[in-house]
């Protein structure tokens, strides 16, 4: 494996995760790598940043047992940090299991995992909190999460 090639690493990790070949320790460590990659990809996508130009908030993205606080200023992700204290929170939260996000982030995701609002009716993802900013910018939030999906996300936000 080319260790400098983050997208390839990520794709292989997602494959292994989806097929149950990744240990819980690896999942935790790779989970951070995955989320950090999200910041790079979103901020490098001019169209996606423009799409979220009115968004200024922090929201919680739950990946398995880990909650990540994602801070957005004018469409750019300015900070991603792991939640350590119960009082650390955001406007709303979007949570799913490691396995579910791995499927969501496959280049061609399986049915029920292909979109946040396809995961919702199946109970695969949980959404909570103050939903107004999410609904006001729904496609943007769906796209910044789906930006982790293979190489397509680099160009058009998933």
């Amino acid at each position: 494996m080319d260790v400098d090639n983050a997208p390839c690493q990520l794709a292989r990790f997602n494959y292994l995760l989806a097929h149950g070949h990744v240990s819980s320790q690896e999942r935790k460590g790779r989970g951070h790598l995955t989320i950090d990659e999200m910041q790079k990809r979103v901020n490098a996508n001019r169209r996606l940043v423009h799409q979220g130009r009115w968004v200024n908030l922090t929201f919680v993205l739950g990946v398995g047992d880990d909650d990540h606080l994602i801070t957005i200023v004018a469409g750019k992700i300015t900070k991603i940090r792991q939640r350590h204290l119960p009082t650390d929170t955001g406007s709303f939260s979007i949570r799913a299991s490691n396995e579910s996000w791995a499927k969501h982030w496959q280049a061609v995701p399986p049915r029920d995992y292909h979109d946040l609002f396809a995961m919702l009716p199946k109970g695969i993802v949980e959404i909570d909190g103050t939903l107004l900013p999410l609904m006001q910018n729904l496609q943007y939030f769906k796209d910044i999460i789906a930006v982790m999906r293979g190489d397509k996300g680099d160009e058009n936000g998933g």
Binding site: H114, D115, F117, A118, L120, Q136, L138, Q139, K142
Partner: peptide, 12 residues
């Protein structure tokens, strides 16, 4: 929001 809702129903 209408488009964002129904985009979940389009095949990837």
């Amino acid at each position: 929001i209408q488009a964002a809702f129904v985009s979940s129903q389009v095949a990837p």
